[in-house]
């Protein structure tokens, strides 16, 4: 039996509204309710368990920094091109405001963080998308950073690991964001033609223009359990075909079954799996 199953959230406690002042102070962040199984989880426990629900294996979304912390050996991550910032190139309404808001909320300058690090001692280019920054959408800065990271990896003969999380191309940059799909694909191709390994990790959600470009171009494509992986999102499809979609449609497991993902890996085993695959390809530590 789960020890925490009987604990209800604070606001569900009887008469809690009246007695709030008499209760000992419990910070909201201390408990997290699993959206999948509704179990109340101690946030420190969740953190220790790779942000995965110990009860039902629900994978909470990670931001890019958490993702890097999860995969990179301690103090080995060296960020690249962190200074690049999006501009409102086509003068799209409210874009500047949205950028500012996302910057404030995430502390990042755009929707991807790139760099090099060691993964269990193996030097790798690591690209992590930030789902909180304008829904992880790809604009020119995102595309440029990904492209530069691939070019760097090609030049230094490094493998690349991408953790994808994106709502697709960023419409506020119009056609120029669409062009990033071609640009990043070109950089992936050059890396591939140099005989180098590219592993993608599809996390919740990977959709649209990112699915239709570098996310689906890995030599090996991994996915996190239950992650939404789609070209067109479920709502768009429902509107197009005017019927309800099956429940597990476009989950990682579904996409695996259809043959577009190599392996669904729980986050607890992700780093080990990456290390293992990198080792099979004879990669090791490199001094950059």
């Amino acid at each position: 039996m789960d020890l925490f199953a009987f604990i209800k959230p604070k606001n569900e406690l009887e008469g809690s509204e009246d007695k709030v002042e008499n209760q000992p102070y419990v910070p909201d962040e201390m408990w997290i309710k699993c959206p999948e199984c509704n179990t109340m989880l101690l946030s420190t426990d969740v953190e220790e368990n790779f942000h995965v629900c110990s009860h039902c294996n629900h994978h909470f979304r990670l931001n890019a920094r958490q993702r890097i912390q999860l995969l990179a050996d301690k103090d080995t991550f060296v960020e690249m091109d962190s200074e690049l910032e999006s501009k409102n190139i086509i003068d799209f309404p409210d874009y500047n405001k949205k950028l500012e808001k996302s910057k404030e909320q995430t502390g990042e300058k755009d929707s991807v963080i790139c760099g090099t690090c060691n993964i269990s001692g193996i030097t790798t280019t690591l690209i992590c998308m930030e789902p909180g920054f304008m829904m992880g959408s790809m604009g020119t800065v995102t595309g440029e950073k990904v492209t530069r990271a691939f070019e760097y990896a090609t030049e230094h003969m490094l493998p690349v690991v991408v953790c994808a999380a994106s709502g697709g191309a960023r419409m506020q940059e119009g056609i120029l964001s669409l062009m990033q799909m071609a640009k990043t694909s070109g950089a992936v191709k050059k890396h591939s033609d140099a005989g180098l390994l590219y592993i993608t990790v599809l996390t919740d959600p990977t959709t649209g223009g990112v699915t239709a470009s570098f996310a689906m171009e890995g030599d090996i494509i991994l996915a996190e359990p239950k992650a939404l992986i789609a070209f067109a999102g479920p709502r768009v499809i429902e509107q197009t075909i005017r019927q309800k979609l099956p429940k597990d449609f476009q989950t990682a497991e579904f996409v695996l079954q259809k043959g577009f993902v190599d392996k669904v890996v729980s986050r607890q085993y992700l780093k080990d799996t990456l290390r293992h695959i990198l080792e099979i390809h004879n990669y090791g530590e490199v001094q950059l």
């Binding site: 799909m181 591939s192 470009s213």
Partner: peptide, 15 residues
């Protein structure tokens, strides 16, 4: 289209 990998098909063409 999704079942047969629309994203994958487009991505492969770009590359």
């Amino acid at each position: 289209a999704e079942e047969r990998g629309q994203g994958h098909a487009i991505a492969t063409n770009l590359m």
